[in-house]
């Protein structure tokens, strides 16, 4: 038996918005630790790794590990039937072929439930090695989203260059070139702070389209962390958190473009 009660059901809506462009279907792995999802997009260029900790749920029960394969477009349809402040309960029997979503309005006078058929998905898990990254950039997530959106107008690729001076995002295309430079600013307590932890300078180039999809997670967290090392995938991490609860994280991995 699996049952998880999420006080703020809207969190799952936001999580879905942050992965639905990249994945058509995915398995949610349930264990005592929480709900995990790890899946690559069809072209194996990006990977989504979602971790929702058991402690983030109001109630969480998972008697045995199970994997629930879901069509994300179907899940979006079901989540559309809920209000953002509904309490959400997800439940499934062991070996069930359906998962049930129950939405309760805050004042308790409206309860709806929806069963969704589960899918058998071939799971191909990737082993992601622990990496010490050459640069780690922490910045406001809405700023990241705007930069990626602005530069995507120029070209299919965005170069991210991280050095002692700060971070430079660049893109070149038919209409010309755009560069956006962010200096490290250490203004204490500022939410707009950009912090760079640098071991060595790194420049890597990535597909704009994927960065734009990742930026859809900006609604989940005020901060985003970009981790880069030469010739390895970029990691873009958003905490899934509200002011009073730490739900976990969503991480995106993106293979860099390779110079011929």
């Amino acid at each position: 038996m699996f049952e998880a009660r999420l006080a703020e059901g809207g969190i799952l809506k936001k999580v879905l918005d942050a992965i639905k462009e990249l994945l058509n279907e995915a398995s949610f792995d349930c264990s005592e630790a929480g709900l995990q999802l790890q899946a690559m997009d069809n072209s194996h260029v990006s990977l989504v790794s979602l971790n929702l900790r058991a402690e983030g749920f109001e109630n969480y029960r998972c008697d045995r590990n199970m994997s629930m394969g879901m069509n994300l477009a179907s899940l979006v349809k079901i989540m559309k039937c809920s209000a953002n402040d509904d309490v959400l309960t997800i439940k499934a029997q062991d070996n069930a072929d359906v998962v049930t979503f129950v939405f309760e309005s805050k004042n308790g006078d409206r309860v709806s439930d929806f069963d969704m058929k589960l899918m058998n998905l071939d799971q191909e898990h990737l082993g992601i090695p622990e990496t010490d990254y050459a640069c780690v950039i922490k910045m406001p997530s809405n700023e990241f989203a705007k930069i990626v959106r602005d530069l995507s107008q120029f070209g299919e690729s965005i170069a991210i260059a991280c050095s002692k001076q700060g971070v430079k995002f660049s893109s070149t295309g038919d209409i010309g070139t755009g560069n956006i430079k962010l200096a490290q600013n250490s203004s204490a307590d500022s939410d707009d702070k950009v912090v760079v932890d640098l071991q060595e300078p790194v420049t890597l180039t990535f597909a704009s389209r994927y960065l734009n999809s990742f930026a859809k997670a900006a609604g989940l967290s005020e901060k985003v962390t970009l981790s880069m090392s030469p010739d390895v995938p970029l990691v873009v991490e958003f905490k899934v958190a509200t002011s009073d609860n730490d739900y976990g994280y969503i991480r995106y991995y993106l293979a860099p473009k390779i110079e011929d």
Partner: peptide, 14 residues
């Protein structure tokens, strides 16, 4: 000119 890398070449399939 650049080509898009793939994750399979960086990570191991388990």
């Amino acid at each position: 000119k650049s080509t898009q890398g793939r994750l399979d070449s960086f990570f191991t399939v388990t």
